[in-house]
Design a protein around this nucleic acid. Structure first.
Lengths: 134, 134
DNA sequence: TCATCTATATGACCTAGTCATATAATAGAC
DNA sequence: GTCTATTATATGACTAGGTCATATAGATGA
């Protein structure tokens, strides 16, 4: 949690009171790799094309990919062809696909949990507004 | 992310690949306090009554409440009456209510982001299954 | 050979959350 | 009275996820 509440009572400028979800971009990475093998820089580009995933730290991305490889979720090989320095091309493994499925399941249940929170929240404040008139 | 992938390719036993959301229980705390002032131990009890919020660390809860107070989201007073040691009773402030609203907004948008991920995920694997037959 | 672009990687750090444990008041056993 | 259990709050130490800054290195062109 950020500590600038006093400076932004309301919508917040320092980021968000709560917005990120643990491992969300990791899930996106695996999903992108399921569609097509790619190297880090490409993945970075693609993530930056969506509002949902943009702005991710390159260091974090590369570290995550190496971690995935250690865990057997992806495997990599060097692509020396083309211009510029060599690229480490990542390909998802069967384990990685399975893991993506599990991950999607958890994301689904998290989404449901958030839904239940919002229902409670909204039902509370709807009753309030009819009594207080806004 | 936990590092036990190899031991649970599939549904996962070490917890989850990704399930928690930053500040989720904080949002619940403020929501509970909006409904009724309470002390830490009560809040702990109430959180433990729902699958969505159970199992939270008491130390974390108390620390969070003190943090909220520092930030002006809640204020506290001692309740000396009744049995047992004194209780610090927390009451939400107008700032806290405003902050809860902002928080709910972010939770809503997070939920939508998760929905977009799941749509992409599902649409990909639906096409796959018709081709591969399961 | 120097700067620049592309691509990958590492070091230092910060914060949220966890685990274990301390503190303290009160109640009841005896 | 004092010992233990219960209720309630709090702190210390640590871990992990993520961020920020920066390093490395090959290819390209001035």
């Amino acid at each position: 949690m950020c500590n600038h509440h006093t400076e932004h009572t309301g919508s917040g400028s320092c980021g968000s009171p709560a917005g990120r979800m643990l491992g969300f971009i990791q899930a996106w990475l695996l999903l992108l790799l399921v569609k097509e093998s790619a190297h880090g820089y490409q993945l970075l580009d693609r993530l930056n094309q969506s509002e949902d995933t943009k702005g991710i730290d390159p260091g974090f991305l590369y570290r995550t990919l190496r971690q995935f490889e250690e865990e057997g979720l992806v495997k990599s090989s060097w692509d020396v062809e083309g211009r510029g320095p060599a690229r480490r091309v990542y390909e998802i493994t069967p384990d990685g696909v399975e893991y993506l499925h599990a991950w999607a399941g958890h994301i689904r249940s998290t989404r449901e949990r958030l839904g239940r929170f919002l229902q409670t929240y909204e039902s509370h404040f709807k009753l309030q507004t009819t009594e207080k008139g806004g």
